[in-house]
Structure formats: C-alpha cells, structure tokens
Design a protein around this nucleic acid. Sequence first.
DNA 1: TCTTGACCTTATACCAAATATAACCTTTAT
DNA 2: ATAAAGGTTATATTTGGTATAAGGTCAAGA
Lengths: 276, 276
Amino acid sequence: MQQLTVGQMAKLNHISEQTLRLYDRIGLFSPAHRGENGYRYYDIKQSALLDIIQYMKSLGISLKDIKKQLEGRDLTMIESALREKQRQTEEEIKRLKTQRRALERTIESFSRYRSAPPDGTLQMEYIGQRQMYVVDTRVNFYDYDFEHYENSLRRLQDSLVKDDLPQIYFCNAGTILNRENFLACKFYSTRLFVFVDREFVPESLTTTVPAGNYACIYCDDFYKEKAYISRLRAYINEIGYEVCGDYICESIADIPVAKTDSRGMYLRLQVPVRFR
Amino acid sequence: MQQLTVGQMAKLNHISEQTLRLYDRIGLFSPAHRGENGYRYYDIKQSALLDIIQYMKSLGISLKDIKKQLEGRDLTMIESALREKQRQTEEEIKRLKTQRRALERTIESFSRYRSAPPDGTLQMEYIGQRQMYVVDTRVNFYDYDFEHYENSLRRLQDSLVKDDLPQIYFCNAGTILNRENFLACKFYSTRLFVFVDREFVPESLTTTVPAGNYACIYCDDFYKEKAYISRLRAYINEIGYEVCGDYICESIADIPVAKTDSRGMYLRLQVPVRFR
DNA sequence: TCTTGACCTTATACCAAATATAACCTTTAT
DNA sequence: ATAAAGGTTATATTTGGTATAAGGTCAAGA
C-alpha cells in the first residue's frame, strides 16, 4: 500500500498542503495513518472521498455542511443537497444576468456622460421606447431643495427593495412633470423614476415611455432646471412644434466625482413633441 | 442641513449600523461630522457616494479596491474597473452554466444508481451518442489493482486541469478496451475516460462514442470485471450478435458510501453489437 | 429633577476558508 | 556532516461583516 505524505497527496489532488492539514484538524478529511514522527500518511484510495469534498465545495457548500452530509453517509441527504444546490445555481445565474445588464447600463451611462453635448445645448432627439419604475412621493420636488431629492431617492430604493427588485444603481433616474403643468409653467412634480429593463422587472411594475421625438436641453446643475425649462419651451414654440406628452428630467449621469460629497449630475431635460 | 445619526443613515440606505461604523473605521465612508459627544453625523447627500459603494460591492469588488477607486476619483479608472467586472461576470455566468450541467449529471448518476438492474444482469440496451474525454495512461489497467486506477484518475484530473476544463466529478468515468483485444480475450487497456458534454468541452478534445445497441452486464465490484467480460462474450454469441466496436467499462455510480474509504462502484460493462 | 429606554460610543471576539508565518523536527541527498 | 527539502504545531492575517459587552448620551414622561 502506497503511503502518501501531505505534500504528495496535495499535488496529486490539486489542493494545498495547508488545506489538507486544515481538513484534518476540522475532522473533515484525515490521513489514513499517522507515522510515529507525526507525519500524515494518506492512502491514494482516499482520493475518492476528497473528490466528493472538492466537488461539493465547488458547489459552494460549506465545509461544515459537507462534513455533516458525509458523516450521515446518507445518499438521499446528499442527493437532496445537490438538488438544493441546483436551485441555488439557477438563481445565481439569474442574478448574474441581471448584474451583467446593470453593468452594461452603467458603462453606457459613462459613455453617455463623456459624449454628452455641453451644458445649455438645445436639440431634437429621437428616443426609443423606455420602461420606467415610478414612485409617487406625494411631495413636490420643486418646493424643496436637492437634499429632498436625495431623500426621495431613498424612498425609491425602499420601494425597489419592497418589490424585490435588484438594487439598480441610480445612474438613470429622474422626475416627471405632467404635460399640463409643463405647458402652464406650473412646477409641480411628485413622481420619481428609474429607467429599468423590461426583461428584469415585471411588466405590472413598470410604465412605458413611448418612443418619439423629444426636444432636449442639457443641464449640469440641478438648480438651473427651472430656467432651462423656459428655454426648452421657447425653443419648441420657435421651431413650430407642440408638446405631446409629459416632461422628463432625466439624470443621464450621476457620479460623485467632485469632493463635494454630492452627486455630479448631468441632466437631459426632455419633452416629447410633434409638428404642429 | 439635516444631520443623520448612524441609525437613521443605516435605515435610509438599507445597511446596518455596524457596517457604517466599519466603513468609517477603514476610511471608506465617513460621516460628514462628528459631534462633541463622539456621535457620527451624516449628511443625506452622502448617500450618493454610498450608492456607488453599494453598487460596486454588489459587483463583488472588495472594499479595499472600492476605496482605491474612489480615492483616485478617476472616472476612467472606475470605468475600466466596471469593464473588468463585466468580463468577470461573463465568465462567472459561463462557469455556473457548466456547474448547472455538472449537477444535472450527478443527480442523473444517483438516479441511475438507484434504478440500475442488480449485479450480474445481462441485457441489450440502446445507448445514444456520447462524448468522452480520453487520456492514454500507457499503463495496462488489468496488470494493476484498484489503487492504480485511482492513480490514473489523478492523471486524468491533471489532464483536465491542463486543458482548462472544469473539474468534473468522476461519477461517469471508465476505461476502454479495443474491440480486437476484447474478442481475443486480451486484457490490455491503457485508455481512461470521463463522459463530458459537447457544449462545455471543445470538440477537438473529445472522442465520439457512436449511438447503437450495446450488450451490457452490470457489476458491483471492480475485481469481478474479467469474469463478467467472459459472461458478456458468451451472451453475445448465444443470442447471435457480433461485436462491432470497442468495449467500455463504465462506472455509472461512484460514491464512497461505505466506511472503506474506497469508491462504492457500480459498473456497466458494455460493448456495441449488431445482428450477425 | 429623576428615571427609563432608545440610541450612541469603543473594544473585542467570532465566522468561513483559507493563507502565511515562526519555530522546530525528520528525512534524504550530497 | 551538512544542507535542503519537507514535515510538524501554533498563531496571526485576510474579508466583510455580525455579535457582544461595557459604558456614554439624549429625549420623554413622571
């Protein structure tokens, strides 16, 4: 019978010596014999057990649980553990797919920020259909300051958590102002939103923003919004269009780069229009 | 300016107080002010930074790295970190998909074990096409004992690692004996394999086992193989078939349930046949 | 004004699953 | 004989928190 030292066994099984010693100490996997010198001597046949341990570990099962499963020597227990793991894996894949999309969105947001027109730019843009997750805060943003907006974002976060949605990074949030209020110069908006992906959020929780032509003005300061809205309205009249939907204040980038501990905002104020 | 205590800030941002204190201690995220009483006072506007931290954390970036990124305040650095994370996510999804399949295989193996015919059963079976990953050990298994087989499995594992393949649990491994040797009663086999999935292993690394009718005999002991091969051959002659391909000794379940620290093997010895 | 309870502070320990180090012993090869 | 390689133990470090103890602060009610 071949006697393997800890180093040989480690190499043979692609595991570190330290780890084998650890497994011995916690009683998960011990050498077949101990020499009088204290050396650990393993039997190659023990590899079979180590295989299972490594396999279960690769499934993310804790050493404690692996030990329990193996001590039980209960096949059905191991099997149900595997089934449970299968379920978890399925979920994890789903989570990662969401994450992948979130990353895409954020990176998009960065590039949008980099290539965005300068502050004050007025232009027409065709924007495709979007989905938003909306929360009505019942408080008028225009009556309060930036701090209140932050507060409201927290509320939106609460809401996302409650609806069991992944916590999206707020790189694409904003507020909605009714068409009527926009036209009447009445600054009254209580609705806050984040843009979301249709595939990851149940349709019942989202609102669709129709595709179409939007009159847009870019804005680098939260506090300039009111003034820029006026310019936007003037622009629309000037080019002979009419407003055909709700106004949106979209933050297209929202990165605290400065030392101010506040958001480094870049807004795209927009309203859907059509030829009169 | 609203001053938030640690508890309020925690609730607002769905994070624990402990964690906020931890972040303060490691200098990742500190309160705007400290009261004379030592209390931490946060500014709601700091939530923006916490958002980013939470976001980066959700991507699995370590706190240390997050700190570094944010201290740099370098947008392009953050962006490239995100891109790196995107790559990692992609890989992780791939890994999990492989894991999902491996789990399926193992669970399959359990149920195959449970429903397998008793030791000694002889029968014809139609078996679909399979892919195998083969290693030639250049040593004849039949000249050595079970220990040597274990040793060879380690070699197979080395090979899998070298080829950058996921470490499949050896629940479906075996050996191949040439048709000629099988017919000549010459026990000479040096090739070891595991069955793999086409989708997860490059085709260049796999060997296809054709679909077809196989004469099979079930065997619960490694050491009975030679005797059972004779019975298999006799059976094939008896029913008037002829061997049309290589013999395979497939371990259909391989679970160390017993206290022996060795594999609890269940073998399906098989050889493709056709009507003479 | 006192007390109570909620909330804050720090320091310390704990968790998993290793990895790293120090201090020391054994084996093997030169 | 000596040195290198490899073995032993015990202890500390890592990560991202959570848990606990011992104590300080604050606001409300009696």
